[in-house]
Structure formats: C-alpha cells, structure tokens
Design a protein around this nucleic acid. Structure first.
Length: 567
DNA sequence: CTGGGGATGGGGCCC
DNA sequence: CGGGCCCCATCCCCA
C-alpha cells in the first residue's frame, strides 16, 4: 500500500491485550477516565464508553448513533440499565474488563438476560449452554434488538436540559416494565471524585457469596418505588431512575414494536417466561470474534439442536467457555475448565498445602507424600507416578523412536521431544532432503482412540498460538513466569515468524490454507502408508493427524520465511 | 540440544 | 447430569 511498506516489521506483543485490559480495569475501579456511568436500580457503575462499545452490540449501536447524531460532546454519560439486574450488570462489566465471567449459578439467568439485552453474545451463549437452553428464535432476535436500538437511538438526549426536565417525573414502574434504557449525557458533574464508591459492591459480594439471591424482583421494585429511599450510600441514587422515564415513554411511542419486552419485572417466573428473551443477536454477529462462536455453536448440534421444538432436552455435553470460547466436551467439564481461567484451586494438599485446580491432580500429587508409585516398569526397578511416564519410559527399553523429524529425519522416542526439536528449527537446512520411506515412523500400537480434534490446520495452528503465544500459561495459572511481567524481550525470530503466520492465516481464512503445503503433504501421505483419515479419526499418531500437524508447521515455516524476508 | 520427570488441561468412560 | 477416574497431549524444567 504505502511505499516502504516492505520495510515494516510487525512485532507481536501477546501480552499487550491482557495488560491493556487490566489497566482499563484499574481505571474503571478507580474511576479514572470513566466517561460513562451505568446504573441499574440505583447501583452505579462507572465505566468507559469505548470498552462498552467494544464488548456490547447495544452500546456500539448506541454510541454509534450518538456519534452520528452529533459530535458527541464526549461528555459524561449516564446510561440506565434497570432491565439488567445489578449483580448481572456487575458481572458483565467484570467480564468486559477481565474476560472472565464470575457469577453464582443462581444469577445465571439474570446475566443471560443482561447479556442478551446488551448484545454480548458470547456470554449469552455460554449462559444458555450452562443453563441448557437454546436460543429461542421467536422471530424477534436481531429484529428485536434492532428495534430496541433504533428506539434507544431516538432516546439519546444530548443535553442535561432534557434530563432535568424529566428527572422528577416519574416512578412508574410500568415504564420499567417495558425495559428501560436511557442515556442522558453530560449529566451533572458526577465527579469521579468518589469513584471507588461507585464501584458496586456487587462484584465483591459476587465473589464472596456462594450463590445467592439474584436480586429479587420484589426488592428491585421496592428499590425503585421508594425512589429516594434512605439509602445512605452514594451508590444508590434512585433519583436517576426517574430520568429515563420521560425518555422511555417517548420511546414507547415511537417504538411500539418493542412494547413486548422482556419484563424484568417478573423475571423470576422465568422458567416459563424467560424463554421469551432467549433470543440472541445471532445474525448480527459481532462481539469478540463471535462469528466463529456462532458457527461453532451451531455446529455442535447437541447443544443447539435445530430450533425445532425441543427445549432443554439436549445434552449439556459440549459447552462453550465464555472466556476463551473453547468448546468443552464432556458433562460437567466446564466448571473444571473455568478454573483454568479463574485460577481457583479448590483442592489443597493436606500435607504440604499445595493447591490444585482438580481433584484428580491432587490425588496424583498425594502419591508424592505417600510414596506410592503405582506404575512400575516391568523391565527395571523404576516406578512412576503417572501412567504416561511409564509409557515414555518403556519406549526407552524398547529403543523405539517412533517419532521422526520429517526434515532431518532424526528420530525421537517422545512426540513432545520431536515437537520441541521441530520448533527449535534446528534442522531447517535439511528440509530438502527426501523423507525416509517406511511406515515405521508412526506406528503407535496403542490403538488409541484419537483425541486430536485439530485435524484441520487452522485449528491446530490457532490452538498452538493459543497455548504458546497468546495465552501463555504464566498468565493463567501463574506458572513459572512472572505473572505481571510481560516479556520485555522479543519473542525471538521463530516465535515472531509463527505469530506472523498466525496472523496472516487467521486473516486468510480456512480455504486459503490448503494450497501451500501441498507438496509437502503429499510426501507425508506417501510416508504415512496405508492409513486413511477415516480409520483413525483424529488419531493422534495416525499419519493423517501427523500430516495435518506437519502441515501446520509447514505453514509456520512459511510464515517464518516470509517474516525473515521482510526483515 | 536432548533425555527424562513432572505438571497441567482436555476428553472418554463410568457411576 | 455432575463428578470421579483415567488416559492422553503438551508444556516446562532440569540435568
């Protein structure tokens, strides 16, 4: 595009996004630079418009409208979201700023509802999955949302005059019934001076409370009704509730179609009624890479059975992680997975105090204390804690080195060692050599049902990126690296190349992947011998799987080379 | 760089 | 359906 573009170097900083989010969250907590205050039934949440627009379709549209409608004086805004329960709103904000949703299971419905209204699709999907519900089409999904939006758009009031006028007016929870949104900007000087107090205690309570009361609608009602109730805390300022009413009525006039909405007033009857607001924003697709989510969710029929009449009947087996969007297979496995994000380690060793995310890991750990090594080597006195250690060990006795580098043909007893070898690129100079022939390469007699799902290169690739570059373990579990400190040095040529490739491939899309490594793949096919994909679906060590994997790596190398050339 | 042990996270099976 | 248990893949660390 631009001259000298080939001189450009892209240096990925995988930690950047996390850091950025973290700093934004700090700012939110301290009220720094907050230009938007969300309120829900009196609770106030200072936040940033840009963040909300980034995470929520609702706000994106809202602010888009605002900006379109005028230069947006940028000013301080208050957005009343009484239709989202305070705890749910708080959880959604936490999600927006931390990529982690922390909610008591009892609050799931409120969060779901909130996520739906705000257009936070991935959260909505996750909640639905967890609740075992499907998106009810109702024909009002995106349409409803659109209507909501346009209505909201109309409601956007730009100056405080409006706000003042309407402020006292109301109470009507009838209005509320309709689902309120209102934005009035540049409301007073809510000096962020006492921002911290603005931060709702909800988040704390959320974490500390086990799983309790989603704010009962009655309470909410009361809160609203009582208007100024004597709540001493500045957090609750029901006054502002009134603000929206004028706008809301207006909205009702102009947006009759929306009159149905999801009555937060009676939310607790939901079992039956909630399905009404089970719709999402599917076709608008949108937030945070949700296009892929949408498809992935759609693909796993088990979870989202064709809308056809069935509700709640489907198995919960595959569930989508609201944080990383990963599909977690297996009943009851999602909580386990979620702990990898939250860092929660509920299982503590009574002997040494070390904590684990999983019970079974603790159990294995306990073997250290008991001295139990249940996996003895039949050929030598060695005993092992893990079965796979024994497996590795046995390969030493057998001398088998089933894993061969396709480039330099060095053989390894362990697959991960081969991978490490490959990643080290220590054999690139030999890549033109013809591969050694013979099926012995990947003979794994384990007859294992394969577990590798990443039979497609892009998935494998992104998965690799996921683990090695973008979500380093150090970030998640405080592993060996410093948690806070992002690496200050460059990741190195190899990693850089890989990142380039990943970025490029991510943009290229799946279909473009096929071409590149074809020749190389052919060689692998030959080598792979008889085994066809069908025989060992996803089999880890099947030639097909290996081929796919090599394909990934060839892709990476291509990326490397290109990156190198650019330099 | 490689060999080896250990840790971690995901999936399958079963209760 | 949730959870326990097991196995596997992968990563990390150390020698």
């Amino acid at each position: 595009m631009s001259p000298g573009e080939d001189g450009l170097i892209g240096i990925p900083f995988p930690e950047h996004s996390n850091e950025l989010l973290s700093h934004l969250n700090d700012q939110r907590r301290t009220g720094l630079l907050c230009d938007l205050t969300l309120t829900s039934r009196g609770a106030r949440y200072p936040t940033h418009r840009s963040v909300m627009a980034a995470v929520s379709l609702y706000f994106r549209r809202l602010f888009g409208a605002e900006e379109g409608g005028g230069e947006g004086g940028g000013g301080f805004s208050v957005c009343q979201l009484d239709f989202v329960a305070p705890d749910a709103l708080d959880a959604l904000l936490e999600f927006a700023y931390t990529a982690t949703l922390t909610i008591p299971s009892s609050g799931m419905r409120d969060v779901l509802r909130g996520a739906q209204f705000l257009g936070i699709q991935c959260v909505a999907d996750a909640c639905r999955d967890i609740l075992g519900e499907t998106a009810e089409p109702e024909g009002e999904t995106a349409e409803h949302q659109r209507a909501q939006h346009t209505a909201t758009k109309r409601m956007v009031e730009r100056e405080s005059g409006v706000e003042k006028g309407s402020r006292r007016k109301t109470d009507k929870r009838r209005v509320k019934k309709v689902g309120l949104h209102h934005i009035n900007s540049s409301v007073l000087n809510q000096s962020p001076a006492s921002p911290i107090s603005h931060h709702s205690p909800a988040s704390d309570s959320l974490r500390s409370l086990p799983s309790t009361q989603p704010p009962s609608p009655e309470q909410e009602q009361l809160c609203l009704k009582s208007g100024q109730n004597g709540d001493p805390r500045s957090i609750r300022e029901p006054v502002r509730d009134a603000t929206l009413n004028g706008g809301l009525l207006h909205w009702l006039h102009e947006g009759p179609r929306i009159a149905h909405p999801p009555p937060p007033v009676q939310p607790l009857n939901d079992k039956l009624s909630e399905d009404d607001d089970m719709e999402g924003f599917v076709d608008d697709g949108m937030l945070m890479g949700n296009t892929s989510i949408t498809t992935s969710v759609a693909e796993r029929g088990a979870v989202t059975p064709a809308v056809g009449g069935g509700r709640k009947r489907k198995s919960q087996t595959p569930q989508q992680c609201p944080v990383c969007q990963k599909i977690i297979h297996g009943a009851g496995k999602l909580p386990r997975h979620m702990r990898t994000h939250t860092g929660e380690k509920p299982f503590q060793c009574s002997a040494c105090g070390v904590r684990f995310t999983r019970n079974d890991k603790l159990k294995i750990h306990m073997r250290k204390h008991t001295g139990e090594r249940p996996y003895p080597c039949p050929h030598c006195p060695a005993r092992f804690l893990h079965s796979y250690d024994l497996k590795n060990h046995l390969s030493l006795h057998s001398g088998a080195r089933p894993f061969e580098c396709p480039l330099c043909h060095k053989a390894f007893a362990r697959e991960d060692h081969l991978q490490r070898h490959r990643k080290g690129h220590s054999c690139l100079e030999l890549r033109t050599r013809r591969p050694r022939r013979g099926p012995e390469l990947v003979e794994d007699g384990r007859g294992d049902v394969g577990r590798r799902e990443q039979s497609n290169p892009l998935e494998a690739l992104s998965s690799q990126a996921h683990s090695s570059a973008f979500l380093p373990h150090t970030m998640l579990d405080g592993g060996s690296g410093s948690v806070a400190g992002p690496p200050l040095m460059f990741p190195g040529e190899v990693e850089r190349g890989r990142s380039f490739a990943l970025q490029a491939l991510a943009q290229l899309g799946h279909h473009r992947l096929a071409g590149y490594p074809e020749l190389f793949l052919r060689g692998l096919e030959l080598r792979g011998g008889r085994e066809a994909e069908g025989e060992d679906p996803g089999g880890t060590h099947s030639p097909a799987a290996l081929r796919d994997r090599w394909a990934d790596e060839v892709e990476e190398e291509i990326g490397d080379e290109e990156a190198d050339e650019e330099e």
